[in-house]
Amino acid sequence: MARYTGPSCRLCRRENMELFLKGERCYTDKCAIKRRNYPPGQHGQGRSKTSDYGVQLREKQKVRRIYGILEKQFRAYFQEADRMKGVTGENLLSLLERRLDNVIYRLGFASSRTESRQLVRHGHFTINGRKVNIPSIQLKVGDVIELREKSRKIVAVTDSLEAVVRRGVPQWVELDRDAFKGLIKTLPVREDVTTPIQEQLIVELYSK
């Protein structure tokens, strides 16, 4: 499976905002944005004005990096969102939010989407009682996500669940911390995505 293996903090600096790619580190003074709040590279502090196309491209790259998706898969999500009824941009965000790795992150079982993806790949979760290992599975209303019994002593998971109070759990999911279980109550809507995203720019970019 293709994936990005470079430095995560470089991506945050390139997008000029905290993407929370490294979990708890992003909340400390070690965060790269707090220490070097300018784009990476030799000419990072002297970049010229960005064109309209550049603004659209940066927005698409930012969303891709937030959810940890490569270009081919991201374009497939956009095409699916475009075929769905409703607003294309909002459909796109809903599809991204309903990925299994994102839901696990939102529920607080992992401190970052990268960590949640690894947990899924290693078979630590079940959906409606069935073991899964595909991070991109699309969840639907009523699905129950549960951490397997043998995985409940993983230190990273317990630490993340203790810290979930600071990050908060979205209204469209429900977390039962004692049972290590989560439930999809409703489909996510635009208001549930609190990350500053201008999805219309992505629609304009792919509509050229």
Rank of each mutant, 00 (worst) to 15 (best):
D29R: 14
P40Q: 02
E80Y: 08
G142W: 02
S112Q: 07
M84Q: 15
Y38F: 15
D176L: 12
H43P: 09
K140M: 03
Q138K: 15
K22E: 11
K60R: 15
R177N: 06
R190K: 14
A156F: 05
T88P: 14
E115S: 10
S48H: 07
L92M: 06
G23R: 11
Y67D: 08
G68I: 02
V144Y: 11
R98F: 02
S151P: 06
L95H: 00
L93F: 00
V155M: 07
S48W: 03
R75L: 04
F74Y: 12
F78M: 13
V103L: 06
N133R: 04
D143T: 05
V157G: 05
R177P: 15
C26G: 06
E162Q: 12
K34L: 15
G123D: 11
A2E: 04
Q118D: 00
T28L: 09
Y53W: 15
V55Q: 13
L183C: 09
E204I: 00
L161H: 08
W172A: 14
Q56R: 14
E174Q: 08
Q79E: 11
E146N: 09
Q45H: 04
E18S: 07
H43G: 02
R117T: 00
E199M: 08
E15N: 10
Q118G: 07
L21N: 00
A179S: 12
Q56V: 01
N16I: 01
D192Y: 04
E149K: 12
P40H: 03
P39A: 02
T186Q: 12
V165S: 13
T88R: 15
R121A: 02
T194W: 07
R148M: 09
I184N: 12
E149R: 13
V55M: 09
A81V: 05
Q138R: 12
Q45I: 04
D192M: 11
R99T: 00
Q200P: 08
F180C: 12
L175Y: 09
V87E: 10
L92D: 01
S116E: 01
Y105G: 00
R36M: 05
L147W: 13
G46Q: 14
E71H: 11
K131Y: 10
L205W: 08
C12Y: 06
Q56S: 05
D176C: 12
Y77F: 07
L57R: 13
C12P: 10
Y53S: 11
D52N: 13
E191P: 10
L201Q: 12
Y38P: 05
R117K: 11
S112T: 02
V103A: 03
R64H: 01
R75W: 06
V144D: 04
N37G: 05
I127V: 05
G41N: 10
E80D: 14
P7S: 05
D29L: 08
V120P: 07
K131W: 08
N133D: 06
V193C: 01
Y105Q: 04
T194N: 14
G123Q: 10
T126Y: 10
A32R: 07
F125E: 02
